[in-house]
């Protein structure tokens, strides 16, 4: 145990926890916006998988992770359009359509991987913004520098998105429109807000963030494999509920989940957790997230029109 409480190990553990939480945070923030507009997207995990595969294929073929990330974003936009068309325009049952999208994307990403890549090959990511961006001066702060200011660019993007989204959702007209579309679409409509347009943009934003989350996960792992996400998208959906549909709360949940995971991992690798209890210890992130919510005071109501398609009279 003493080995763990050395500053170097601790700061490395926290840095890795933040990195682990970043893909979850990106996906969960995107889902937050979509849900606030009234659309439940259970297909996040599938979108992450397709985007991760797209980013992987492009990074492998072009040698450029930047292009891969762009492709992941593009896949996110396309999947967002499809999701919004099914859920908003057609008004399909969102619980089923989300699971359908997840299953189809799970299969398709595996299929395309087998067809176009076959043998797994790691992508080359040895330098550049997708390895680490050192924030000048701040990265020299002992320990804190390692924890916060030597992360890859997508981690910063995820963290910066939290205040940005908080501002957009609570202090801009668009944010108010999203809120109205999710709470009382009929009233919003009567005030001249296009519920369809608001929901489309919110869903596409959410899906694009899921795409970025997929790319972020790919960069973290350096390689694609079938079902790379292992359900991370579903955890992201759960974190939206944890955060009470607020970006700051979602961020808290994602970081809590990532940090717990990374502490457990470090304890396992240091042998602090005996091998026989290794599996039980792996439950800790999930248990702690539930317990945290159980004993947290504030409780938030979900958007009233969440999951309800809207059709003008």
């Amino acid at each position: 145990m003493s080995h763990f409480f050395t500053a170097a190990v601790l700061s490395a553990t926290i840095a890795s926890g933040i990195a682990l939480g970043a893909p979850l945070l990106l996906a969960a923030l995107g889902e937050t916006v979509g849900q606030r507009s009234g659309v439940l997207n259970l297909g996040v995990d599938g979108i992450m998988l397709l985007a991760a595969f797209g980013a992987y294929l492009v990074a492998l073929r072009t040698g450029s992770i930047g292009w891969g990330v762009l492709v992941a974003l593009a896949i996110g936009v396309v999947m967002g359009l499809i999701t919004a068309f099914i859920n908003v325009t057609i008004g399909a049952e969102q619980g089923i359509s989300g699971i359908g999208i997840y299953i189809a994307a799970l299969g398709l990403s595996g299929l395309l991987f087998e067809r176009y890549v076959g043998t797994p090959t790691p992508i080359t990511n040895s330098r550049g913004p997708f390895v680490a961006v050192h924030i000048p001066l701040l990265d020299r702060i002992p320990y804190l520098g390692t924890m916060l200011f030597k992360q890859n660019i997508l981690v910063y993007a995820a963290l910066l998105l939290v205040p940005a989204l908080t501002y957009v959702l609570h202090h801009t007209t668009y944010g108010m429109n999203v809120h109205a579309a999710g709470e009382n679409p009929a009233a919003a409509d009567s005030l001249g807000v296009s519920v369809t347009r608001v929901r489309y943009t919110a869903v596409i934003f959410g899906s694009t963030m899921a795409g970025l989350a997929g790319a972020s996960l790919l960069i973290l792992d350096g390689i694609f494999q079938e079902n790379l996400t292992q359900g991370a998208g579903f955890i992201a959906v759960a974190l939206v509920y944890f955060g009470g549909w607020r970006p700051a709360g979602v961020a808290l949940g994602a970081l809590l989940y990532g940090l717990t995971g990374s502490v457990i991992l470090t304890w396992k690798t240091l042998g602090i957790i005996p091998l026989s209890l290794s599996d039980l210890a792996a439950t800790a992130p999930a248990v702690i997230v539930v317990l945290a919510l159980l004993f947290l005071v504030g409780r938030y109501r979900q958007p009233a029109a969440l999951g309800k398609p809207y059709r003008r009279q």
Partner: peptide, 28 residues
């Protein structure tokens, strides 16, 4: 074919999507 399990998964997902979407159209 070596990727048949993925193929089946994809088709199952597509069927779910199509049926749920067109069920909504029909009902509406």
């Amino acid at each position: 074919v070596p990727y048949s399990s993925d193929l089946v998964t994809t088709i199952v997902g597509l069927i779910v999507c199509f049926v749920v979407a067109l069920d909504a159209v029909r009902r509406r």
